[in-house]
Design a binder for these strands. Structure first.
Length: 254
DNA sequence: ATGGTCGGTATCCGA
């Protein structure tokens, strides 16, 4: 089973690259973040023409998440939204079961800066995520993928000194991520690959070509699923070429 | 020479 997670920074602006990705990899599930689309604008027809159905959680111009699955595969028990999240209208969490595996696509709030009013909302979202992960981990095997907007360790940013006093690396966020892990999941990419590399690079300043990135897109899975992961890595080709997202897709073969 | 970018029914704000 091949599963991918990708923050596409607008599914409509990225449609050509999304279709290219589906054609190249034919994943059994593609977890999308930042679809940035209202539900009545979601590109169901174009995806259907490529052989994929979508379970999406879409509420407007920002955020938005989805799970794409081949047409001939059954998708059951969709859940849209996360119990206890501070701003449910932002559409940052969607779940569905595919081939007996519970899947989650999540887009954790950015937080902007440590002093911004939205930063406490990021921490509250992570608290709600910990509670839901504990429930899911107790219920059976599952795999969560998404943009966590946290670099788990200093090795996951291009220059940790540049991030002192900023979001994505703060002790507050890392403590919350550790609490999520303690709820019963493993960082799959890190589990499989010794030096996982980055998943995001700023559009500005030639950051990608200069290697100035971060690893903020993660797969978190119950240990049984993590042990079954044979390969895990990013496809850098999708950070190159025409109209790339600022994130590269992360894939895992189970 | 310390800039440089995208996407959003936008002309600033969010990432």
């Amino acid at each position: 089973m091949l599963i991918a997670t990708w923050n596409v920074n607008s599914v409509r602006a990225r449609m050509e690259r999304v279709l290219e990705f589906l054609e190249v990899h034919r994943p059994d599930a593609l977890l999308l973040q930042e679809t940035k689309v209202a539900q009545d604008q979601f590109p169901y027809l174009e995806l259907a023409a490529a052989g994929y159905q979508a379970v999406d959680h879409s509420t407007g111009r920002w955020a938005g998440v989805a799970i794409l699955v081949p047409d001939d595969v059954e998708v059951t028990d969709p859940v849209r939204g996360l119990a206890g999240e501070p701003l449910p209208a932002e559409a940052r969490w969607v779940e569905a079961t595919v081939r007996g595996l519970r899947l989650v696509s999540v887009y954790v709030p950015n937080g902007r800066s440590l002093a911004d009013p939205s930063f406490p909302d990021k921490l509250r979202f992570l608290d709600a995520m910990r509670d839901r992960v504990a429930t899911l981990a107790a219920a059976g095997p599952f795999l969560l993928g998404g943009d966590l907007n946290i670099a788990p360790t200093d090795a996951d940013v291009w220059d940790p000194r540049r991030f002192v006093g900023t979001t994505h690396t703060s002790p507050h966020e890392r403590a919350r991520l550790q609490a999520v892990l303690d709820a019963g999941v493993v960082d799959v990419h890190r589990h499989v690959v010794e030096e996982p590399g980055f998943t995001w690079w700023d559009y500005r300043a030639g950051a990608f070509h200069r290697g100035l990135g971060m690893r903020i897109d993660l797969f978190l899975a119950t240990p049984d699923v993590a042990e079954r992961a044979r390969r895990c890595g990013i496809d850098r080709d999708f950070r190159k070429g025409p109209k790339p997202s600022d994130h590269a897709p992360l894939l895992v073969a189970i």
